[in-house]
Every structure is written in structure tokens, then in C-alpha cells.
Write a protein that binds this DNA or RNA. Structure first.
Lengths: 149, 149
DNA sequence: GTTGAAATAAAAAACAA
DNA sequence: TTGTTTTTTATTTCAAC
């Protein structure tokens, strides 16, 4: 099940993180491998769950989401929130973390009224602390593969 | 530059967020549109920057990153961190937010020593507060397109 | 928006190191 | 096992409508 990631895999993963729709032939040209060899390696990386999937990255503003917020929820002895989070379309990321804040979430809202409604819902799970995102410096940066030299 | 997103675009964006490598012909079958019509719409969504790009989603654990942490940095009157953040491979997400925490970051580390080194570096920009991620409930959930009915 | 032809890419097969 | 080239199938691009 586990595999060792060699320099070819490392480069392939870098390229697919930058452009998931790059053709296997073009990847092959860049890494100096034939198209079937690249396809074979990608298939193995997929079945080993090194590659989890391929996602189009959408601009939230273009869809009317003018506000991104980070909401921390102190969830100690609160009711379970996993199902709620999974089904709430505004919650894009949600992590259970150590410390007094049980959960950290990234949410999208169309306007402040919308954000208020989301916060009201989340208050059912614990006290919340909301910070509005002013600048997104990086979001979903490519993961660097540790050196295998 | 701006465009109205109709029900076809909405479905196309949903499908590409789930699987960015789905063929345009298959998308066409699902939305009941010809393949060139789908390609045309996708090209428009790309050039209007509704679609920002296509990314392979990589499993950090598979690459040796056993720890994910949320680090908050109180950066008031601190030195600028945008360049550092852009070039630090362990910082995957970084947001400047309102409130006393100037910045919220998601970082990957191979082990606690590695995490400690990252925190030490970040302390140059302000006092830090670190919470280790115990569970990732959702990360990069598909953005729902608001109704256009 | 559609169909249909040409170019390109992916998958399958046969085989070499 | 991991790679190569060749062949077949699928997809994308580019007309013309």
C-alpha cells in the first residue's frame, strides 16, 4: 500500500498541483518519461491515495461570496457538529483542534446578514469568535514533497 | 468581464469541483449539452476567472506530513510577513483577518520538531498561538453556486 | 447552440531492460 | 518491476452551419 515517492513522482505531483488538467504526454515531456509511464505512475499515486482527487478552484467573489470569515467555536461539552458542518454549504473548511477553541472553520457569506445567520446557527454548538478575512495571501498552496535525494 | 452564471454553468462548476479531470463530453452528457458547448462555457469561465485553475489534491500524510496546525500570529506593528509566507513551503493557507490576531495560517509539519522550527520562525512577526489539528472534517469543500432560478 | 472532420491525448497491447 | 514503442480508443479543437 505504501510506496516510495521518487524524483519522477515528486515532479509529477508538483505539476498536477499546479495544473490538474495537464496532459500526461506534456507531463512526460517535462519529466523526460513516456506518456504511458506517466499514466502508470499517476494511476498508482491515485490508488495509493497520495492523489486524493482533482478540483477546479473557483473564485468565491465571482459567485457572489463577498465575505470570507474564520470562525472559532468553543465546542467543549457541546453537541456534535460534524454532520452540521458536512451539510452546511457555507462552511468550506472545518478542523477540530487542540486548545480552548474546539473547532476552526472557514466560511463564505454573500454579505454581513448572511454571515450573521451562519454565526447564529453555529452558536448552537458553542461560543463563537469571528474574524473577517481581509487578505488571502495563500490558499491551498502546493504541497512541497520532502526531498528524497 | 462579468457574466451571469446560468443553470448550465452552475452544474458545470459543481462537476469540475468534484472532478477537475472529467471530460467535457461526459460533462455534456450530464448537463444535456454538446461537448463543444461545454468546452466553450468552460473557456469563458476560465477567462473570466470564475475558474481560477485546476489542482490535484494531495494527501499530506502520504508525503510525510504527520502534523497539521493552525497558527494565529498577532502581527500588529510587526514586520511584513507576506513575502515570508509566500516562500515558506510549510504554510499552505494564510489569511490576514480582523481582530487581535492579525494572521491565521494553516501549516504542515513532518513532526513536532519541525513544527517547533516553523513557530520559531513565525515568532519574528508577532506572538503566536498554535493549535494542532486533530480532525479535518472538511477541507476545500465545493463552493455551492447561489440559486439563479 | 449544433454536427462532423482533423489534431491531440489516453488507454491497451506487445515487448525490452 | 518499470520502462519503451505501437496501436486503438477517446477527447479536444476547429471548421461550417
Amino acid at each position: 500500500m505504501n510506496q516510495k515517492i521518487d524524483q519522477f513522482d515528486k515532479k509529477i505531483l508538483q505539476l498536477l498541483q499546479e495544473d490538474a488538467r495537464m496532459s500526461h504526454a506534456e507531463i512526460g515531456r517535462k519529466v523526460h518519461l513516456s506518456q504511458p509511464a506517466v499514466s502508470e505512475r499517476i494511476k498508482r499515486l491515485e490508488s495509493n491515495r497520495v492523489i486524493r482527487g482533482y478540483r477546479a478552484e473557483i473564485n468565491p467573489k465571482a459567485l457572489g461570496y463577498d465575505i470570507t470569515a474564520m470562525i472559532r467555536v468553543s465546542t467543549q461539552q457541546g453537541r456534535p457538529y460534524a454532520d452540521y458542518v458536512a451539510n452546511c454549504p457555507e462552511i468550506i473548511d472545518c478542523y477540530t483542534v487542540t486548545g480552548e477553541d474546539g473547532a476552526v472553520m472557514r466560511v463564505l457569506a454573500t454579505d454581513v446578514d448572511h454571515l450573521q445567520r451562519i454565526i447564529n446557527e453555529l452558536n448552537a454548538f458553542g461560543s463563537t469568535s469571528t474574524a473577517i478575512v481581509l487578505t488571502t495571501h495563500v490558499s491551498g498552496k502546493s504541497i512541497a514533497v520532502p526531498n528524497v535525494d
